[in-house]
Computed example of a mutant assay.
Amino acid sequence: MKENKFLAIYNDLLLQIRKGAFQPNEKLPSENELSQQYRTSRETIRKALNLLSEHGYIQKIKGKGSIVLDVGKYDFPVSGLVSFKELAQKMNKPARTIVHELELIEPDEYIKRQLETENKEKVWKVIRAREIEGEKIILDKDFLCQKFVPILTRDICENSIYEYVENELKLRISFAKKEMFVDRVTAEDQKYLDLNGYEHVVVVKNFVYLEDASLFQFTESRHRLDKFRFVDFARRTHQPHLLP
């Protein structure tokens, strides 16, 4: 019976969110208020709220309660390999890139391992915040091998590094390996992003390869978790029938 009760509450709250009774960034009533409204225990309410959180409809923020997320999130292609400029054009939203750091460095051991570089190879370090509709919601930390990208300027980084690499350097970007996980926000995230009280970000690590399978870029892209829906397309490969 309790199981049916919390699912019924979950479905009712979800229907209200979808109909717009609760707007994005609006706070849901407290657990006490909801328990009185639905005439049930706080434990049952907590189960319903946890399910809403797991499915991406609300975010529980310490000291603020349960905040309704924007279900019209930006689609971010997991399997695709697109630049931020291309993504912004596809979304047709006002967007800009803010370059915070651009320097040629001797990479530390961590970056050397990610890029599989030799000891004396130098690497471009680029730190950029991505702003969409007036909010800085992505922090990109790019590391590119100088042997493939000899020159890099602030103008290039503000526009599109991929566009420069392909059109000016005539290199062909071929494929990427990706890793995704959720991480707690860092001091750097707090400095460069509009976090709006969120304590976690979605991190996508990209290892980007050229046509000859040379690894030329490593990127750690940190996304505010309420603003993106990570999408992919999967097709089942059917195994050939084996004869008995």
Rank of each mutant, 00 (worst) to 15 (best):
A88G: 09
E109L: 09
R113M: 15
V78D: 13
G63Y: 00
V82D: 07
Q89S: 15
L139Y: 00
G134P: 01
T117K: 03
I132Q: 00
E101P: 04
K112N: 08
Q89M: 13
E109G: 06
I105H: 04
P107W: 02
I132N: 00
K90W: 11
I61D: 02
K122I: 08
D140V: 08
F84S: 09
I138R: 03
G65A: 05
K136Y: 01
E103H: 06
F143Q: 05
K64E: 11
K93V: 15
I105E: 09
I132L: 12
S83N: 05
V99P: 00
L81P: 02
V99K: 01
V99I: 09
F76R: 06
E118W: 01
D140A: 15
V71D: 03
Q146N: 07
F84K: 06
S79E: 14
N92W: 06
Y110E: 14
S83Y: 01
A129W: 00
M91D: 14
I132M: 05
N92G: 14
I138C: 02
R113Q: 15
D140Q: 12
C145W: 04
K93N: 09
K125D: 02
E101F: 08
L139Q: 01
I138D: 00
E118A: 12
I61L: 14
R128W: 04
I105C: 09
V82I: 10
K147E: 14
I111R: 00
F84R: 03
K85N: 12
G72P: 07
G65C: 05
K120P: 01
Q89V: 12
E133M: 06
K122R: 11
K73R: 13
C145F: 07
G65M: 02
W124G: 00
N92E: 15
L115S: 05
I132E: 00
H100L: 08
L144G: 06
E109A: 10
V99W: 00
E121Q: 07
G134I: 03
E121A: 10
D75C: 12
P77H: 07
K141Q: 13
E101H: 12
E121G: 07
K141C: 09
D142Q: 09
P77D: 04
L104W: 00
E133F: 03
T97N: 08
I105T: 06
A95G: 10
R96D: 14
K120I: 03
D142V: 05
E106C: 13
I105Q: 03
K93S: 12
V82S: 10
E106K: 15
R96Y: 08
V82F: 12
K90V: 10
R130H: 05
